[in-house]
Amino acid sequence: MTTIDYEAIAREAGLERVGARPPLGSYLVSVWRRRAFIYTMARYRLQASVEENRLGLGWIVLKPILNALLYGFIFAVIMPSDTRPDNFIPFLVAGVFVFEYFSKALGMGARAIVGEASLVRSLNFPRMLLPVALITRHAIEMVPMMVVLGIILVVTGEPITFWWLMSIPVLVVMTAFNLGVALTVARLTVHVRDISQLIPLITRLFFYASGIFYSLELVLADQPSWMLRLAQLNPVHDFISLIRGYMVSGNPVNSFMWTVAIVSAVLMLAFGTWFFWRAEERYGHD
């Protein structure tokens, strides 16, 4: 038996190792190059799924409306309380709609890779496309939701102001945050499947901690001020507060909210991108 130096043959021919993770920069470039594939697939999948539901795309806005109706019924009719502002319905609806944006990123982000096992196992593409496509879809769905929110606010007597336009930068910052969250949980569930069991619990925790059906400021009014500060460090609360601040009367915006929102979005996106890219070689391998 003659031993062949395979490494030397590969080196001389200038071959590269298959499946090697590219550096972060060229990885992101390859994500951008393959965007047409994932965009077209998302669009076609949507078309295919719409054909099955009679209301089709209507469900995107109908679901949060029904959610808001349910919460409105429970918290305004069955359990009224003085920890809620006077214009409770617009307050609640804005909270539920913005929270829905976050909870979708968390819940569906967790399934971005493990839920696409057959695709990941049989095709080569930068895996980051999957969570990116997911967040893009959610961002697009946010457009009709904001229109519906506007209509609900007008119906419940909120004045239309130019400040409403400030919701656009808030949602842009929130999208960056959501993408960071989706990238992080997408990798975590690959390592430990059990995390997907915890996601509903985490979602609920954020739901109660982010002041959706009550005002954190009113609840913590009698408590030491550090408690409110602590509660305001939750970025989800700040995104909701900023949207309310610009769209629902009686909710002042302060610079602390913006600081937390922007800093958390930048950190989350940077961490999520790095964290997801680090495990590129692992996705779909077990």
Partner: peptide, 8 residues
């Protein structure tokens, strides 16, 4: 290890 000249 597997080496290749282009992505198979």
């Amino acid at each position: 290890t597997i080496y290749a000249s282009s992505r198979p």
